[in-house]
């Protein structure tokens, strides 16, 4: 029996050491970054090159594939949302659709490679890039300073701010209206969560890990309001009877941009060139008309779309 405890403790110790060992390697810029999760993408990581110097990120252990390696392999992994209509979602035929996807398809076409969509959740977008599970994140990724320490953002292709939607029976127009027992629904890993934690720590948050569950929770009345990107809450209020966006903008205007692994210069500059080139042909306006018009109508086109990577502040 005594032997068994020793075995258990030894196992625990070994596990702890392995984990801390990974941490140690990480700061040294090791090339093996698949420590945290199983390596779903074995081929990706074996081809990956170590970022080595230049990445000042806290975790500093990024694996990525360069532009040439992607072209050579014939397919690109793009991380998108599968439950964020109309930006990135899976339609009734099982195909990915939306504004982000429209852009992703163009990237695949211009690179001449097959696109392999990887469904992500808000909270693991950075993770997927850091571990090389995807080459690009095109999942409504808001540019923030904190995130820019971990990943490299390309030029923006959309504007965004935060917004808060609540049921018509009790429309929240200001955060000060929230009472003691009121909880605000947020999605773990979104800018709304970070913003509220930093600027309104008194607001009680109810956190979900996917868009689908958060929406369901709002419909079921588990929280009094839902804070998220305003594009998302406006879309929700337009698509669902009985909801009003009481706070259309909260905090500052931000932008949404594609992101690549920290230090992946070749892919980053290719995407930047692509966005500028597509700007010439008004590509993102076309993308809006193809994917967002049904939801937002023509009124939001100029506010939302960023063409050619140039933000025109209104």
């Amino acid at each position: 029996m005594k032997k068994r405890y020793t075995a258990v403790l030894a196992a625990a110790l070994a596990l702890a050491l392995t984990l801390s060992g990974c941490g140690g390697n990480a700061s040294g810029g090791s090339d093996n970054s698949n420590a945290s999760g199983g390596s779903a993408n074995a081929s990706g990581s074996s081809q990956a090159s170590s970022s080595g110097e230049g990445s000042g990120a806290a975790s500093g252990k990024t694996v990525y594939r360069t532009l040439d390696e992607i072209k050579e392999s014939g397919s690109i992994n793009i991380g998108v949302f599968s439950d964020k209509n109309p930006f990135g979602y899976v339609d009734e035929n099982g195909d990915y659709q939306g504004y982000d996807i429209y852009f992703a398809e163009q990237i695949g076409k211009d690179l001449g490679v097959k696109i392999n969509y990887v469904s992500t959740e808000a909270a693991n977008r950075v993770e997927y890039l850091e571990t090389g599970k995807v080459d690009i994140i095109l999942a409504n990724f808001t540019v923030t300073e904190k995130r820019a320490e971990q990943v490299d953002f390309a030029l923006p292709y959309m504007n965004v701010a935060l917004g808060v939607v609540s049921p018509d029976s009790r429309v929240i127009t200001d955060l000060s209206e929230l009472g003691d027992g009121d909880q605000v629904i947020v999605i773990s890993g979104t800018t709304a969560e970070t913003y509220l934690i930093e600027n309104n720590p008194e607001v009680k948050l109810q956190k979900y890990d996917s868009y689908a569950t958060a929406k369901n929770a709002l419909e079921n009345g588990n929280g009094v309001a839902w804070a998220n990107d305003n594009t998302e809450v406006i879309a929700f209020a337009l698509q669902n009877e009985g909801y009003t966006v009481g706070i259309p903008t909260l905090g500052s205007q931000d932008t949404i941009a594609p992101a690549v692994s920290k230090g992946n210069e070749s892919l980053l500059s290719w995407i930047n060139d692509e966005i500028v080139a597509l700007g010439e042909e008004n590509f993102f306006h076309a993308a809006y008309e193809a994917t967002l018009m049904d939801t937002y109508g023509p009124d939001f086109e100029e506010t939302l779309v960023v063409e050619g990577g140039k933000v025109t502040q209104e």
């Binding site: 801390s20 806290a58 975790s59 909270a123 971990q150 588990n222």
Partner: peptide, 25 residues
């Protein structure tokens, strides 16, 4: 179901501050 148990706390912290190793440890 939005219960802040150990797993969700770790996931949430990773999503917020990207300190993966520490959170998983």
């Amino acid at each position: 179901v939005s219960i802040m148990d150990l797993m969700f706390t770790a996931k949430d912290l990773i999503g917020l501050y990207y300190r993966t190793t520490e959170s998983l440890f």
